[in-house]
Amino acid sequence: MDSASTAMYAALLIASVGVAVSAAEELYRLDVFSDSGILSWSVLRFTRRRARLRSVQELADLLFRPRAFAALLVAKLAAGLSVVALTIAGSPPRPLLAALSAAVLALVLLMKRRTTFGLDGSDHMQVVVFLGATTFLVVPQDSLAATAAVLYVAAQAVLAYVVAGVAKLAGPAWRDGSALGGIMTTKIYGTRWVGEFLTGRPLLGLAACWAVILFEIGFVAALFVDQRAMWGLLAVGVLFHASTAVLMGLNGFLLAFTATYPAVAYAHHLLHAGWL
């Protein structure tokens, strides 16, 4: 991918689909955010440090009440779908797209402010992509700042994978192959038959755990191998996240992380073209 614009618009499109999907899922399970739900703000507000300014805390209490929060989710869904529609239409007005990208970024940050429970790496990666996209869209298109915005997304993606792999490498359960079997037997993230299958076959569990570790730590190689190998590694990443979506219910990872792949491909282009 040899164009910064192509890379960032592709990243923005994929990430916006992910935001729309997550908003739709949250609206479908709106009951968990009600006053009697497990993610009730009347309870969660006490798990967060209170804002120093009373007016800021009052605003948070107002925005995170059930009806207001539902409106925020609708706005998140609408903004995500609007970015998708504009991007697919081709040649979207940069100021309008920048405003929508900034709106999605603000809404994602508000979601993170409301609760830390149930969040995962996909939430962080959404922030990364929309921060990079908003920056890219407000600076001159062919400027160094625009290139830096794309490279920021690529660097964050590579760092996220490597850090995750190193963290797993430090865990005894990952090194001995029991981690995936254990995770798959949990109620929240598991698929019991898969967990039991891996637990009953220690060598297969060991191979699966080390495959994940090596993929994540080795993701940095996507920047340095030839183009065909890079696309192959990114394809493995898509399959990896698709499998976690199916088996573990981590749907957000698939679109949030693959949204960074166009930026990784652009960084690869710059490296091999001698620009970096």
Results as ranks from 00 to 15, higher is better:
165 G>N: 08
129 V>L: 03
3 S>E: 07
87 T>D: 09
233 L>D: 00
265 A>Y: 01
47 T>I: 06
6 T>W: 07
124 H>E: 07
168 K>G: 06
152 Y>F: 15
273 A>G: 13
128 V>S: 04
120 D>T: 07
86 L>Q: 11
179 A>E: 01
29 R>Q: 13
69 F>V: 00
9 Y>E: 10
83 V>P: 03
156 Q>N: 14
21 V>A: 14
94 R>A: 14
247 L>Y: 13
161 Y>G: 01
254 L>D: 02
19 V>R: 09
139 V>Y: 02
106 A>D: 01
82 S>Q: 04
125 M>C: 01
101 S>A: 15
85 A>I: 05
146 A>F: 00
255 L>Y: 09
178 S>G: 09
120 D>N: 15
257 F>I: 12
19 V>S: 12
187 K>G: 08
119 L>Q: 13
52 R>D: 12
247 L>V: 15
140 P>F: 09
83 V>R: 00
260 T>V: 08
158 V>L: 05
197 F>H: 11
136 F>H: 05
137 L>H: 01
37 G>N: 12
61 D>H: 10
161 Y>C: 02
239 L>D: 07
155 A>T: 10
89 A>Q: 12
145 A>E: 14
191 T>L: 14
114 R>C: 04
182 G>W: 04
34 S>F: 05
114 R>K: 15
234 L>F: 06
39 L>D: 08
194 V>R: 05
19 V>D: 08
191 T>A: 13
107 L>T: 06
198 L>N: 05
235 A>M: 12
36 S>P: 02
50 R>E: 14
122 S>Q: 08
184 M>P: 03
265 A>R: 00
47 T>V: 08
169 L>R: 10
93 P>M: 11
30 L>F: 13
23 A>R: 02
221 A>D: 05
194 V>M: 14
223 L>T: 03
82 S>M: 10
127 V>H: 01
79 A>R: 09
181 G>M: 09
43 V>M: 14
139 V>D: 02
210 W>Y: 06
81 L>T: 10
163 V>F: 10
149 A>G: 06
6 T>L: 11
166 V>M: 11
101 S>Q: 04
195 G>V: 01
88 I>G: 09
46 F>C: 02
35 D>L: 11
191 T>Q: 09
164 A>V: 05
255 L>Q: 07
124 H>V: 12
54 R>P: 01
237 G>M: 00
103 A>G: 10
